[in-house]
Design a protein around this nucleic acid. Sequence first.
DNA 1: ATGATAAAGTTGACGTGTCAAGTTACCTGT
DNA 2: ACAGGTAACTTGACACGTCAACTTTATCAT
Lengths: 159, 159
Amino acid sequence: MLDADDPESPDQDLKLRQFLTYRLVRLQSRLNVQASRYLAEHAGITLTDWRIIAMIDSLDNTTLTYLNRETGLDKGQLSRKLRSLTSRGLVSSQQDNQDSRVQHLTLTAEGKSIVDAMLPRMRARQRFLTGTLTEDELSALHRSIDKLERAAETTEFET
Amino acid sequence: MLDADDPESPDQDLKLRQFLTYRLVRLQSRLNVQASRYLAEHAGITLTDWRIIAMIDSLDNTTLTYLNRETGLDKGQLSRKLRSLTSRGLVSSQQDNQDSRVQHLTLTAEGKSIVDAMLPRMRARQRFLTGTLTEDELSALHRSIDKLERAAETTEFET
DNA sequence: ATGATAAAGTTGACGTGTCAAGTTACCTGT
DNA sequence: ACAGGTAACTTGACACGTCAACTTTATCAT
């Protein structure tokens, strides 16, 4: 039972947890906790709220469909989140003149002030995170992410 | 608003998406889709089901609390998932003799056969994924994940 | 012994993520 | 001009994740 070659060996959990994907899950979860806590504390918003208002701020002439395409966030989720954000007065939506299906999204003054206050801080966070890596490590990381994303599109990987 | 030099620059969305954390979110999501699809197709189970039964298989004398500590999965979620897994006949649980609070978890024959069938395939997937990286890239990636995890514990990052 | 404390697991509540179907409005070919 | 298709959202359904309160049982200090 203690032989490393034995398929029932108790150190398999170690191996399991060294699966790259397990490590990424855990990293992701910790980063989310960090960002969520920070945003809740300093701006009273959630991480998804933040992603949406930051995107609305950074894109011109935003609509739900456009946000969906740009961020990959689900249309349904966006629809509900946007209702919440408009009812809280952070986003305002205005019907298009020509096409009454489309709603143009803009930040209200309050929404804008949150983004203006938080964007530098969120950028500082990115710098802090990437600052723990060397230049080489950072560029290698981006390259590895590229490769892994491509590999994630494959559906069969039997030998 | 992502470019300090040109607040209205039209390529801002690009920069936003180059935030390391955004890239990790997207990578994570694609890896999850890949693994979930694969598991659903070949074993009819979800990714969380898989994590749990793979852990039960690899650990000796498993209990809910132990799983919780080892995997970081929420106790509540584990409790519900385990009920589903036992009712589906993949896991069996048995009360401890000394301490009637604890339930020892083991795989049923069916659960075990799923793990035995899928573990090599999931390992093959890991090899496939890591195989797209060079040795150096892989070790740099692990190192970077370590560093980022540590950085994710920090709560303040103002300059 | 026994009362405070804590551990194992369960349950409830609530936000998030994902898929699919539905509604309304526009567009296009005849 | 109008039928069929498609686009922009909305709504519904359901799994997942996360937090906290709760129940039951054990432990430990006195």
